[in-house]
Design a protein around this nucleic acid. Sequence first.
DNA 1: CAGGTCAGTTATAGGCTCTAACTCAACGGT
DNA 2: ACCGTTGAGTTAGAGCCTATAACTGACCTG
Lengths: 221, 221
Amino acid sequence: MQETAGGRAEQKARTREEIKRAALRRLREGGPGAVSVNALGKEIGLTGPAVYRHFASRDELLTELIVDAYGDLAAELRAAVEAARRRSRPGRVAALAAAYRAWALREPHRYRLLFSAPLPGYDAQSEPLVAASQAAMDVLVELLAAPGPPAPAPPRALGTQLGGWARRRGVGHVEPATALQAVRLWSRLHGLVSLEIEGNFASMGLDVEALLRLEADDVVG
Amino acid sequence: MQETAGGRAEQKARTREEIKRAALRRLREGGPGAVSVNALGKEIGLTGPAVYRHFASRDELLTELIVDAYGDLAAELRAAVEAARRRSRPGRVAALAAAYRAWALREPHRYRLLFSAPLPGYDAQSEPLVAASQAAMDVLVELLAAPGPPAPAPPRALGTQLGGWARRRGVGHVEPATALQAVRLWSRLHGLVSLEIEGNFASMGLDVEALLRLEADDVVG
DNA sequence: CAGGTCAGTTATAGGCTCTAACTCAACGGT
DNA sequence: ACCGTTGAGTTAGAGCCTATAACTGACCTG
């Protein structure tokens, strides 16, 4: 052991990462069912139970994978928006949409992890998960909150709800109309991309990219 | 045994149904992970292996649950459209959207079964599954193909793809523009409803019904 | 250098899917 | 009316899985 330098803490961190890498590998190759604690241990030269020194349970490990995935997705979206910063507002939204889809197509196993509860009594409402998810949502909100043509006002009741949400989240300056755009964009992205990933468009020979652009453009007007 | 009349075939059919009912019960109460062949058997007074006389594998059982669920959903949508037959076209679309959401909220465990692969190497592309899924999609297409204001034409390439799809499916009379509306409606419904079911709107206090109406109106309006 | 900490081990409990081998009641042909 | 076949049920067991318990031995600290 101790091929690389570092004390116990560093070694432990390295092993944790190694386990997570193995988990992602197996997730990619065999789906969530293939991510078994025993198999992960074996894959990195440990026995099964040893893994429990690093993760309290399989749930904890998967939760961490989910949080990481949200982080990666958010970073990718942020980068795409940044790269398109010279383009028009609709152009930036289209760039974000394309990046969203590209990430999901590149890592469908991780995208699935985010949006379909992989566990028996899994709690998607747990603190860190909600936080991670909202961090990704923030990218959309920020982009849409940038100066641009005024968004159509939401119906009265929805407007109140969206305003309340923005206030509770500490972004009270965001207009309800903008928040509505963000929600619409998010749900449209997710709808199209998740259907595509699960193969529901496979038999249709559709250019989902074009469809996505259509839907994204329609959100920002 | 043999409380009710019937020969071996009828008895067998009854037991199959009983197993499926137990599976739905456990699915509702404990998620996909709780649908174990052993537990199902016990629940209806059999040993675990006996269940394999009726279903070749757990996969086969789940596949049948999925096909049934698609059927139920399609029937419900059809009924909603029928009940709203006196209303305007947008009114009928709104009714369908509401019915879609209502079904999903009433049976989230079954909705999840439809749209998130619950199994290791599950094949969502298998013949019966695709057929069942398209039967549900047909309800949307039929509704939108009914006489109404002309839908905006899709971009050239998308139009070609949608036309080809309609032709291959034997509904060549359906305009590409109509097919596009169906796909947009479908993906928007799924996006909103699946996010709602997974709790992603929970912290937002949103009236998803209103949001859904907005999105549906936007497709036909 | 003594003592504690902790990552690893083996053994084990209890669950799962699914197969094998067997039993025995009901059905159908003669 | 009998008797062979069918088939729905049984128990036993292989080979996975998650997770815990008890133990070992290397490292770090005082």
